[in-house]
């Protein structure tokens, strides 16, 4: 009898998994087709034709130069943020933890704020003028890694995870206050530019940057999946995990480094994307009714991609075009969904 139940549950999980994969394919296609210019289905059929009428060449151009990099960026960002969120929630055994909990995305924001808003305080931050878009990425990168470095130093000093969490949050506050100051002294146009960056976008990565972006994110995703066994043991708490043979210091270091790295890269390229990293692990747990990282890690990767692509799609619907940026969509549509699921399940965890 109970074997029957086990195999049923396994089957249910498989059905959900396959459905999500099909949904993902659908989202990819819709993301290719829908936007300010609708690309008809025929354009995809004739995509690889050598000879094309002019309007189809334009469609092909839009797909290759604009929509393809956007989709890859959304897919990698969603997967990375979901995974980083799961890593933080497991490390701190806290359902409220997410990729931004250690202040890393605030660090990225500070970097960008210094570049975009800095002209008012001496004009030394001219990287923006020199390097354009790359300068923004580089500034965000530098800020994020500076904070990650501080957090890693703190992790070496502080043994207690709760203390480390508070340190991370405090670093975030301190960094945010500097950003606030920069906003205060910044000029109107600059502040607007910074606000726009802060709303996030998957459209910032061009085709020529895509390879580097992928090369940075992909290995960290692969390395993260190698930690599923010790992450499972950590669910029971530090003392039990240690007794089971987990090297606590090492796993903590690995989780902070990987999650911090992923968050830093994604934030540098897309801006601080809210919500996906916090909510995706909860969606995965609710959907698969499991806390086993062997199921949660693939689930989080898949759901992260889906949520990111879904939000990107909503943001590009003709009605919302240029009205709702990605961060507004993620929170506005995602929050009620998660609240609904949690209220329905009446149970939440890490």
């Amino acid at each position: 009898m109970h074997f029957c139940k086990v195999s049923n549950q396994k089957q249910t999980a498989q059905v959900i998994f396959i459905s999500l994969n099909i949904l993902l394919l659908g989202f990819v296609f819709l993301n290719l087709a829908i936007g300010s210019v609708s690309v008809p289905f025929s354009a995809f059929i004739h995509f690889f034709d050598a000879q094309l009428p002019e309007n189809e060449i334009i469609w092909r151009h839009i797909i290759i130069e604009s929509r393809f990099p956007q989709i890859v960026t959304a897919i990698l960002s969603g997967a990375a943020l979901g995974l980083a969120g799961l890593q933080m929630q497991t490390l701190f055994r806290n359902p409220l933890a997410g990729p931004s909990i250690l202040g890393i995305s605030s660090g990225a924001s500070l970097g960008v704020a210094l570049v975009t808003l800095g002209s008012g305080i001496g004009g030394i931050f001219i990287a923006q003028n020199l390097m354009g878009g790359i300068g923004i990425h580089l500034a965000a990168f530098t800020g994020a890694f500076l904070v990650l470095f501080i957090v890693l130093l703190a992790a070496k000093k502080v043994r207690n995870n709760a203390s480390l969490l508070i340190i991370g949050i405090m670093v975030g506050y301190a960094v945010s206050s500097i950003i606030g100051l920069l906003n205060f002294v910044g000029q109107q146009g600059e502040v607007h530019a910074f606000v726009i960056w802060g709303l996030g976008s998957f459209a910032n990565v061009q085709n020529n940057q895509l390879l580097l972006f992928t090369a940075l994110v992909f290995p960290a995703l692969i390395l993260s999946t190698l930690l599923m066994k010790p992450m499972n043991a950590m669910l029971l708490g530090d003392a039990y995990a240690q007794n089971l043979g987990v090297n606590l210091k090492q796993i903590r270091w690995q989780l902070i480094l990987l999650s911090g790295f992923l968050t830093a890269i994604i934030t540098a390229y897309t801006g601080p994307i809210a919500f996906i990293g916090l909510a995706t692990p909860h969606l995965a747990r609710l959907l698969f009714k499991s806390s086993d990282h062997k199921k949660l890690i693939p689930a989080v990767l898949l759901l992260g991609m889906l949520v990111a692509l879904g939000c990107n799609l909503l943001a590009r619907l003709p009605f919302f075009q240029d009205v709702l940026p990605i961060n507004v969509i993620t929170s506005l549509f995602g929050a009620p969904l998660v609240i609904y699921l949690i209220v329905k399940r009446k149970q939440i965890g890490f």
Binding site: L236, G237, Y240, N243, R285, S290, S291, I348, G349, F350
Partner: peptide, 13 residues
């Protein structure tokens, strides 16, 4: 092996 006083609070386990 150990059995401790600290509580285990994992949903879905």
């Amino acid at each position: 092996s150990v059995v401790l006083t600290e509580s285990v609070q994992v949903p879905n386990l």
